[in-house]
Design a protein around this nucleic acid. Structure first.
Length: 488
DNA sequence: TAGCCTTTGAAGTAG
DNA sequence: CTACTTCAAAGGCTA
């Protein structure tokens, strides 16, 4: 959780953080981190790791093929070109912003493993070692879409550039200007969901709050979204590179969306399937994209459910500034997505995923501490109004409880049209973060006092804090996650 | 082989 | 307006 232990470095009131993301019974996030790293991780790994997976840690050296070398040269050419066009800032010192060639992403949507012959390296989009072109933005490891959609061909780069209409709309004339991004801070970072390259992470612990490795800076920088107007049917970029937000109308995705059985080739040709436009990734998804490979490498885990739990804990362990990078990226992603697909709605994808008969809601009803209802009940998703001082969501429970907005821009009252922080990123002057006891899911956010619901803890002071907690259902021994909402 | 698991956040639906 | 659901990624697992 951000600023649980600010160390004085966070002027946003680290110690005043409203939310403490804790495991049950744990009193200190830092302690938890260490404990998790050394203890839980071992358990987790022992329970999940297949010995055969150990080989994953010893990535073979990357050997460039001739095609790869061509690709590298090609990308460098593009990069130089784009830097010239967009006046891309130079790489910064380290961390998230170390890379630079970030703008003009429609042309940067080139797979790291791109083969001029139209094939994609089997290692693409995997955790495998990838020799990264230098100077790339680290967040390109946030690969929202599989490069399996790629079928790039150099010929496409010049042949299809102008003919195909956009998926939805308008056709800008000046791509470079269209993609120019506001300068300064995170804003310099183009939403950079790259493609397949993943950083090579050292095999270490699974502890939290590890500083962004410099290795993160070695990713290529490609965006999820290419320019709207240069998108051809089925999300195909004029360069021949499919738009990352669009799932090609073939394979599993197609069947998921349309629930159809394979058609004869002739019919399929006559009636090309409508491409699926995926939702833009939120901040946490972007974070997962980037950090998944690291967790996998460190923990030798492959099971996404377990990895996501770890990532969720690390996410809460990030500082506000670290999270802000992802929120800003997500915001830009959404903005770009809206520009690319103005008529698209998340509703379009509703019902695409079929669920089993098992009624999850029934499960939640039988589990007093079930998370799902809690998440919604406490209004994490309720964005009804804007916070007066910071122009962020007024519905934020911390705001309602008298907390101070932790927005980086809130101090001067400057308006922010689009919040970089979600509504739950508010702080409170008082931060009793120690209560480890979750209330049942039916606890009322607005309750001023809650008696502790667990008799076995009766010897301890009852928690009087409205609480929001999520509980890991996984059979793996990852701690129950608890988010406290500190009342005023 | 399609869906589950698991996470957070955004956006949708229902009442 | 509130409460809740769905989807986004990922890959092993399971019915």
């Amino acid at each position: 959780m951000p600023q649980l232990n600010s160390g004085g470095g966070d002027d946003l009131g680290a110690n005043d953080e409203m939310i403490a993301f804790k495991d049950e019974g744990e009193q200190d996030e830092k302690i938890e981190e260490n404990a998790f790293t050394e203890g839980d991780l071992a358990d987790l790994k022992s329970s999940l790791v297949n010995e055969s997976e150990i080989s994953q840690n010893s990535h073979p050296p990357v050997v460039r093929t001739g095609h790869q070398e061509e690709q590298r040269v090609y990308e460098e050419k593009h990069r130089e070109h784009l830097e010239h066009l967009n006046d891309v800032p130079k790489p910064q010192d380290a961390g998230m912003y170390k890379a630079s060639t970030y703008s003009g992403y429609p042309f940067l949507m080139l797979p790291e493993h791109y083969h001029p012959n139209g094939q994609v390296s089997p290692s693409a989009n995997k955790v495998a070692v990838v020799q990264q072109p230098h100077g790339m933005h680290p967040l390109t490891s946030l690969l929202p879409y599989s490069n399996e959609h790629f079928n790039p061909s150099p010929s496409h780069l010049t042949s299809d550039m102008s003919q195909k209409p956009g998926v939805h709309r308008h056709q800008p004339h000046d791509l470079s200007s269209f993609y120019s991004l506001p300068s300064g801070g995170v804003g310099q970072i183009t939403p950079s969901m790259g493609w397949q390259s993943q950083p090579v992470y050292p095999l270490s612990s699974c502890g939290f709050r590890q500083p962004y490795s410099s290795s993160l800076a070695s990713n290529s920088s490609y965006s999820r979204f290419s320019h709207s107007l240069i998108m051809g049917p089925s999300g195909m970029h004029p360069t021949g590179i499919p738009h990352p937000a669009i799932v090609p109308s073939s394979g599993r995705q197609e069947h998921d969306q349309f629930d159809i059985k394979p058609h004869p080739e002739s019919k399929r040709e006559r009636e090309p399937k409508k491409p699926v436009i995926k939702k833009p990734l939120n901040a946490f998804m972007l974070y997962m994209k980037e950090m998944r490979a690291k967790v996998i490498a460190e923990c030798t885990l492959k099971e996404s459910a377990a990895i996501n739990q770890i990532l969720g804990r690390r996410w809460h362990a990030l500082t506000r500034e670290e999270q802000a990078k992802y929120y800003e990226l997500a915001r830009k992603e959404r903005q770009l997505h809206m520009q690319l697909y103005p008529s698209w709605s998340a509703r379009d994808n509703y019902g695409k995923k079929k669920r089993r008969k098992r009624d999850k809601q029934q499960d939640s009803a039988t589990d007093p501490g079930f998370p799902k209802k809690c998440r919604a009940r406490f209004g994490l998703n309720q964005q009804m109004d804007w916070c007066d001082p910071c122009r962020r969501k007024k519905k934020c429970i911390r705001y309602l409880q008298g907390g101070q907005c932790a927005s980086p821009n809130s101090s001067d009252g400057s308006a922010v049209d689009s919040p970089s922080f979600p509504i739950n990123h508010f702080i409170h002057p008082a931060s009793p973060l120690n209560c480890p006891f979750p209330l049942p899911s039916d606890s009322n956010l607005h309750a001023q006092t809650r008696k502790h619901p667990y008799p076995q803890h009766s010897t301890l002071s009852p928690c009087e804090h409205p609480i929001l907690f999520t509980r890991a259902k996984t059979t793996n021994t990852i701690h129950t996650s608890v988010v406290h909402i500190i009342k005023q």
